[in-house]
Amino acid sequence: MRRREFASFIGPSLLVMVGLLVLPLIRTVQWSFQEVNYGQAGTFIGLSNYTQALGDPRFGRAVFFTLLLTAIVTALILVVGYLVAIGVNGLGKLRPYILGSMLVAYVLPGVVGAVSFSWLFNSNFGGVLNLVIERLTGQELLWFTDTWPNRVMIIAHTVWHLLPFSVLMILAGLQGVPKELREAARIDGANALKMHLWVIIPTMRGIIGFVCLITIMDVLRTFDSLIPLSPQADAIGNESIMFYVFDNAFRDGSQQLGLGSAVNVLSILLILICLFPFIRDLLKEAKAKA
């Protein structure tokens, strides 16, 4: 493909991304050094937004919670997603129904799913799961105000919402594993486990890496599900970074727009660090091809 052709093919898309992603991003970086309101020119205040954010214990809590959530959810999604995909792959006639019902959780708009999820647990609104769990364990858990029960609920919701995507991807990946390997993995017992660990999973390294990547990205930006699931998120240490930005830069007006922007920039850095292994692989591959 010639250079000029390449440019003409890629141009429109690149133009949209530069215009609508890069330019706003530059604005965010500018704002992060300013004291500023929407629709007004800001005044340069150096790094004070950054020092304010980094010195704010609330921000620290948000970072901690977000990373914790990301780590737990990603691990759960990979393990459960793989097991479910193996199971679904072995199904016959049932497969479309099982897969279809599971996908519902993924296609529900996040915030809608979170509202439904919160109703399952909210005793004041006649939740049923809290009641079942109370009967089973004999303990009345405070799903919305106690840090860990609330975390468990948020984790359960996030896994519930993102699991179908990973199942779908891994299932698709399994179709690419040579048939003999899959047949061999069906033998029961310890051999099967070894087969999965040492043969099948390495074959699907690419797809599993991809699922991992997408899950990390999606969990790092958890935001809307917390509105119904954690109404006092900050007070119990379950606020996400994006929620912190929302609260400072949008909800209570724009006084804190500079601070919010600084947090945005910081979270971009954080995300890049989390994604670094993937970026390194990509660059390596490019170098190999070049």
Partner: peptide, 8 residues
């Protein structure tokens, strides 16, 4: 009061 009163 309900222990979750701070969400009400």
């Amino acid at each position: 009061m309900d222990p979750e009163v701070t969400t009400f």
